[in-house]
Simulated scan of single mutants.
Amino acid sequence: MKAAWMTNAPDRISLAVIGAGQMGRQHAALITGQKACSLAAICDVNPTACSVADHFGVSFYRTLPELLERERIHGAIIATPNAEHAREAVHCLQQGVPVLIEKPIADTLEAARQIIDASDATKTAVLVGHHRRHNPLVRQAHAILQSDTVGPLVGVSVLWTLCKPDEYYQQAWRCIPPAGGPTLINLIHDLDSLRYWCGDISEVFAHTSSATRQLEVEDSLSITLRFENGALGSIFASDTTPAPWSYEATTGENPTYDHVSENCYHFCGVRGSLAFPQLTTWSYPEGSPRGWQHPLAHRQWTARTADPLSLQLEHFCQVIQQQETPLSDAYDASRSLATALAVLESASQGRPISIKQP
């Protein structure tokens, strides 16, 4: 149901940001740059975060209940540590306030289920920040894969290989499993993208290694995937190798990463294949014979350039006004969390793991 003040759409959507860390500050900056919304407040348990609120010229609160009592907001963006997502999201939802939750939706499936149940009970929207789904490159690849160009999917191969700087792991939480390793920090994005492109994953089998960094968390992974539609997949991931084949480096989405014109995903179908993010498809010309002795034709597709985080924020405003449904709702995002947790469970137990329902 709509909050009382949403009976008539406001001129500007009033938003609060919960958590003033790196992502919280980024969300706050994006809000202030949008015409459709405005920043009402910042909330963080750390009193020094009041400087962030001062920077943006908005109110600062140490607790979420106090913020919700005093501020008249239309939505909240939750950018706190994963273990705090459920408590804060449920509190907002119970007040009829839609939420955008940074990925992953929570740290456990039990916590994710609390968010799903609260959203269902209050009929209040949850959008989870799997922002890559908003990238026009990703949307174009989705359209190609859903068309007859590639045909029924046979399999997909993924590389996520890069070298994180040594200072990255000077933050202690990044060295502590399960939240600190690349599976839940990075690969949950790729697993969610694969689900968006190819359909749900039914089973994973993973091996991990910490041989290079010698930390508690993994630095390299090898994952095999089985999709519900019968397609197969593989991921090799490592954050400790000088290599250009990662979503971040190849798409140019994040200017922090050095951009290279390479591919990191290869999709193989019955009718053709797709290399991403260059968006090149390969197939036999219509009416031509098929077989390895015959030449393949290729086609270059294009997509517009746009910041997916800004597009996600615009989408959240539309969701708040009930003009769009969440591109990644609580249940859908919980499936991505379940897949990532299954990867860690498989590596720990040394056997294939079926994906649990949230």
Rank of each mutant, 00 (worst) to 15 (best):
K2Q: 14
P10Y: 01
I13C: 06
V17M: 08
Q34C: 10
A36T: 11
A36D: 06
C43F: 03
V52A: 09
H55F: 11
R72K: 15
R72M: 11
H74I: 04
G75F: 08
I77V: 11
A83P: 12
A83V: 12
H85Y: 01
R87V: 05
L93N: 03
Q94M: 13
T108R: 07
L109Y: 00
L109T: 05
A112D: 08
A118C: 07
V126H: 01
V128H: 05
R133K: 12
H142R: 10
D148T: 12
T149D: 04
L153I: 09
S157F: 13
W173H: 05
R174K: 04
P178A: 02
G180C: 11
N186L: 14
D190L: 02
L191R: 01
L194A: 02
R195D: 10
I201H: 04
S202N: 02
S202H: 04
R213C: 06
V217A: 05
S220Q: 14
L232K: 12
G233L: 04
I235Q: 01
F236V: 11
F236S: 14
S238L: 10
D239Q: 09
E248W: 06
E253N: 13
P255F: 08
Y257I: 06
H259P: 03
E262Y: 06
C264I: 08
Y265C: 12
H266E: 10
F267D: 02
G269Q: 12
V270S: 08
G272K: 05
L274T: 03
A275P: 02
G287S: 03
W292N: 15
P295A: 09
P295Q: 09
R304C: 15
S310K: 13
L311W: 00
C317H: 02
Q318A: 15
Q321I: 10
Q321W: 08
A333L: 05
S336Y: 09
L337I: 01
L337V: 06
A338P: 12
T339F: 00
A342Y: 04
E345M: 07
P352E: 02
I355G: 08
K356I: 11
